[in-house]
């Protein structure tokens, strides 16, 4: 660069484009301040969490011991129990996702601008979805245990509730991206509002929605593995029990079991999603 331009040329350019250069410099200063602030907050967080080198080293040592004890994974005599609990986990995920999707579709229709242009209803629905999503699945599990008692049923309802928020938002956004021209076509031939929805909008969005439901089923198999920790059914109960009683071989067995299952579900569901979006072009 310096070979190509003479010094005074560079100085001249700098002077002429001072505005741009100065903005660049102040922007950089702003970024530096931002980074420093972020790091200060980070170190404050570390101090508050009482993170110290000695604690980390001691903890890592213990963690190493645990990992040594985990090998090889071994379920002892409880293989059957764990596989059954895993089945329960998958069932919870499936039923919860299905229930959420069934409940969310009509609600999402109410929250879509292009179908129901009433501002108040839409805002209320959207805020409702956001509130539901703001609460973690595990908290919903706790609440439902208070209502229906311990067991997998509370788990199903917990997954269904927390997905209701997610699906409501996703579905209504998907519905709003639907092309309005088929709807206008149906309206112009004298179709009712219900027919507009059924033949104009749903055929466009159903494949997308099916893909979203499958995607959430995948992620729910993950959440369903942990809701047992608070007593809402599935393999999480066994996992937390074995961790608390320091049965490390069983712990690693369960973790491996979960990882393999999740990988299999991911594989199947990604194939299905590809088939849905390929077979029925939008």
């Amino acid at each position: 660069m310096n070979k190509l331009f003479a010094k005074d040329q560079i100085a001249e350019t700098t002077r002429r484009h001072r505005g741009a250069m100065v903005i660049g410099r102040s922007r950089r200063r702003q970024q530096a301040m931002f980074a420093i602030g972020a790091l200060v907050l980070l170190s404050f967080g570390l101090v508050q969490a009482e993170v110290s080198p000695t604690r980390i080293l001691a903890g890592l040592g213990r963690l190493g011991e645990f990992i040594v004890l985990m090998i090889p994974p071994d379920a002892g005599s409880s293989t059957r129990t764990y596989v059954e609990a895993l089945g329960e986990t998958l069932s919870i995920a499936l039923l919860g996702t299905m229930l959420a999707a069934l409940a969310a579709l009509p609600l999402a229709i109410l929250a879509s601008r292009n179908i129901l242009p009433i501002w108040l209803v839409r805002v209320l629905m959207r805020r409702g979805f956001d509130s539901i999503r703001g609460v973690d699945t595990l908290i919903w599990a706790l609440i439902w245990i208070g209502v229906v008692g311990l067991g997998p049923f509370a788990g199903v309802l917990a997954i269904a509730t927390s997905d209701l928020g997610a699906f409501g938002k996703l579905f209504s956004e998907t519905l709003e991206t639907a092309d309005q021209r088929p709807v206008e076509g149906i309206r112009s031939t004298g179709g009712t509002a219900l027919q507009e929805l059924r033949y104009g909008i749903l055929p466009q969005v159903l494949p997308l929605i099916a893909g979203q439901i499958l995607y959430y089923f995948e992620s729910n198999t993950r959440s369903a593995t942990i809701i047992g920790i608070v007593g809402a059914g599935g393999i999480g109960l066994h996992l937390s029990e074995q961790i608390r009683t320091l049965e490390w071989q069983k712990v690693s067995f369960i973790i491996v079991l979960v990882l393999v299952t999740v990988a299999v579900i991911d594989f199947i569901s990604s194939k299905l999603r590809a088939a849905i979006s390929g077979a029925r072009p939008v």
Binding site: I56, L138, I226, I229, I243, R244, L246
Partner: peptide, 11 residues
């Protein structure tokens, strides 16, 4: 939360 369960014992 599974990591947390284990880390509570370790740390």
């Amino acid at each position: 939360i599974v990591f947390a369960l284990i880390f509570v014992l370790a740390f």
